[in-house]
């Protein structure tokens, strides 16, 4: 499948943190032809394996499959639903079409001319909002806790870009799928575990479990990162859409790992950018690095605008270049002696 086809298929599936079965089931079926085996671990992470003898180093590449969502918090009179929106700027919610328990709905709020006093001067709050699924009473409504997803079809934005809710992190998942496709039938100098992790958006629970259990020789976390966009004053250092994958540089990435990734990108002539990560990378990599006895870790990210909103946008070429960089890394391999520190 093309990268666009993977992106379209993967963003059509919804999976709030803790409800990842849908994506896991899809990938389990789709990836079987490209893997020696596909397993699920105790945390719910799905792993597609390219096996090999134990003397080959184990390369773990991880991308999370959960996505941010809204949740039904309360059912109120008239069949309307109060919502909670963790990790989402609620200012993007009024007027949005959503899906609740498989049914369409609209997010409403009091129209501006009816808001009391100077409430129009204040931004929208969660409590100003409600979901309308068009039913007249409270008998036939989804229960409290039901995840609510943005109901917006994927779209082609110009010749190169692609937009859909949930591109954080299905863009990376698509890159991993492309990687496995590219390696089909090819000998590689590493044992490869492509891991699709759960619970990243609520504390990276899946990655911590995964790193502890597998203790790979090298782990690469693949995620999305902030791309430059208008109206973010003082944020000129952010990554640029269309300039290739962002190679994380900072405490999450030991120098030998950084140079390995950079030199492979250079040799394979894959465009890439260096992303400064002065602290927590905000990815599974942060948990993988300190899992168990510690894991040498790298962070590779796909630039994305409007993160955690219904209007997330990536450049498809960046997704392809990310897949190519991962493919080059898997085919080049590495010696355990190349990596820090024991």
């Amino acid at each position: 499948m093309t990268t666009r086809e993977w992106l379209t298929a993967l963003t059509a599936i919804h999976a709030a943190s803790g409800c990842e079965d849908s994506v896991r089931d899809y990938l389990e079926g789709r990836l079987a032809p490209f893997a020696d085996r596909v397993t699920t671990d105790g945390a719910g992470n799905l792993i597609a394996w390219r096996d090999g003898p134990k003397d080959k180093p184990l390369l773990l590449i991880a991308a999370h499959i959960d996505q941010v969502a809204l949740y039904v918090q309360q059912v109120i009179a008239g069949g309307y639903l109060r919502l909670r929106a963790p990790a989402i700027d609620v200012r993007c919610l009024p007027g949005l079409t959503v899906e609740v328990g498989g049914r369409p709905g609209v997010i409403g709020m009091l129209p501006p001319h009816l808001r009391r006093g100077n409430e129009g001067e204040k931004p929208v709050q969660e409590d100003d909002l409600y979901i309308d699924i068009g039913v007249p009473g409270t008998d036939d409504v989804p229960p409290v806790g039901t995840p609510v997803y943005f109901r917006i079809a994927p779209r082609s934005v110009g010749p190169r870009r692609f937009s859909a809710p949930g591109l954080d992190n299905r863009a990376s998942v698509a890159a991993l799928c492309r990687l496995l496709e590219a390696l089909q039938g090819k000998e590689i100098p590493v044992r490869l575990a492509c891991a699709f992790t759960v619970g990243e958006e609520i504390g990276r629970a899946g990655a911590a479990f995964l790193g502890t259990e597998q203790q790979p020789d090298l782990a690469l976390a693949v995620d999305v990162t902030f791309a430059r966009q208008p109206d973010l004053p003082g944020q000129d250092f952010l990554m640029e859409l269309g300039s290739g994958p962002a190679i994380g540089v900072g405490p999450n990435v030991p120098l030998p790992v950084e140079s390995l990734i950079c030199s492979v990108a250079e040799q394979a002539r894959i465009p890439a950018q260096r992303e400064p990560l002065p602290g927590d990378s905000g990815t599974d990599g942060w948990a993988l690095q300190v899992a168990g006895l510690g894991v040498p870790t790298g962070v590779i990210s796909i630039p994305l605008t409007s993160m955690h909103s219904p209007a997330e946008v990536v450049d498809v070429q960046d997704v392809e270049n990310t897949a190519e960089l991962l493919t080059a890394l898997a085919r080049t391999g590495f010696g355990r002696e190349d990596l820090p520190w024991d």
Binding site: D89, R91, C92, G95, P112, R155, T305, M307, S309, A311
Partner: peptide
């Protein structure tokens, strides 16, 4: 059209209906 309802919404631009989106700063950075 109240600006408050626009961030993050899908739109179509021009007669030929080019697909577009209205952006919003990432919640982490705003």
């Amino acid at each position: 059209v109240d600006a408050a309802i626009l961030p993050g919404k899908p739109v179509r631009v021009g007669r030929d209906g080019k697909e577009g989106t209205i952006g919003i700063a990432p919640a982490h950075l705003s």
